[in-house]
Simulated assay, not measured.
Amino acid sequence: MIEGVRERARLPTWLFALVFTTFAFATDDYVIAGVLPAISGDLGVSEAAGGQLVTVFSLAFALAAPVASVVSATWSRRGLLTWALALFVAANWAAAGTTSYAVLMGLRALAALAAAAVVPAAYAIATSLAPEGRQGRYLALVMGGLTGSLMLGVPIGTWVGGAFGWQATFGLGGLLGLVALVWIRVTLPVLPRAQAMPVRERLAPLGRPQVLLGLLGIVAIVLGSMMLMTYLAPFLRDLAGAGPAELGWVFAAAGLAGLAGGQLGGRAADRWGADRALIAGVAGFTGVMAVFTVCWLLRPLALLALLPLLLVWAGVSWWIPPPAQTRLLALAGPAGPQALALNSSAVYVGVSGGGALGGLVLESHGSGWLPAAAALVELVALGLFWTASRLRA
């Protein structure tokens, strides 16, 4: 116990700056779900069209991340983070002042380009500066900024948007980016410039069919989860009459449940094996989606009565990624590090696909069909991993 406290006390300040940086970017991406109805109403577009703000951010990130990692490989890390965070701040503050849907889409793409440069670099810095034997812990802390955004950043951003308008939410995103920029500049040490990795070597894992199927499985897993997450506001409004204030509490509770689910999923992958843990997670997700579909038939329901189900949904959604990534590592074999480098892009392709496909379902059939469609996509993901395992065997 005492050793754990001492270890946390010795953690360097620059590490917390990197955690806050990933927290700021993830908050900026996910918070759209909480203010989606307000954005759509003010800009005169449908909620399905408003959801494409998530799609464009995630798709731009997915496409730019591998390119940014190659192009900026020999750049100064402090310089890269400084200029990218400055672009992020400018894009968010400009978004707070626009009244054009098209301009807002472009600004979201610029913010995503900044994220694509910073987030992979933050992971690399954490592992390169970590003491021997602590690389995993440092990396886990930096990645924890993503989950922390769901527990704290998204609820705060949603409440701010409900109280002061959605423009204030983007203003808050720019402020978070500014704090991250200053914190990085003050605490991050000067790092030696790295040698560039050849593009062919970085993309080599895509030449293996089982790895490609594994990456597609990651895409499908995230896509299925984000179909409901992106349009949670209209879904809970239609199901339980929930407004922005209630959504803030829902996101906070869901973030906490997701953090617990991710830890349990990782332990299950270690104890049961990745395959069994993955099957259990997808089965749990599919079951929750089936219950949501039944609830839709019984609407309207009290939000408080739905809270346990929402917590289980968040838990199983975050349970699935650890065993899925463990399975991807096994499929990649010696190419595991390169496959995981592409994993970030696969995740954001899934996020963008979730916004796009979920928008189509919402526009054509209504929010009540989102759970069933999400469950179907998760089952497809399970089939992709099964096929990849068969190819490897």
Rank of each mutant, 00 (worst) to 15 (best):
L141V: 09
L150P: 01
R276P: 10
F251S: 15
R134E: 15
A253E: 10
V316M: 07
S225D: 14
L139G: 02
M1K: 11
V186C: 01
L310R: 08
I279V: 12
G177W: 05
D238I: 10
P321H: 04
R185P: 05
L59C: 07
A64Y: 01
G4H: 09
I218S: 15
S76F: 00
A64P: 11
W249P: 02
F20Y: 14
P308S: 04
A194I: 01
L107P: 04
A112P: 09
Q52G: 04
A26W: 14
V142P: 07
A374V: 05
G51P: 14
L141A: 07
L304T: 13
A194N: 00
W75Y: 01
G353K: 02
G217M: 02
G207A: 15
L11W: 13
G148H: 12
G79M: 04
M143G: 07
R276T: 13
L175I: 04
F20A: 13
D42R: 08
L382W: 09
H365M: 10
P209E: 08
L247M: 10
A314F: 05
A373Q: 14
G266E: 12
G153K: 09
A233R: 05
D270H: 01
A60P: 02
A324E: 13
A121V: 00
V380T: 14
S72I: 00
F23R: 06
V294S: 09
L107Y: 04
V89R: 01
E201A: 03
L212Y: 12
T293V: 02
A268K: 14
L297T: 15
L139H: 01
N92I: 07
R202W: 02
W296F: 15
A168R: 05
F292G: 02
A204H: 13
P66Q: 06
Q325R: 07
L360A: 15
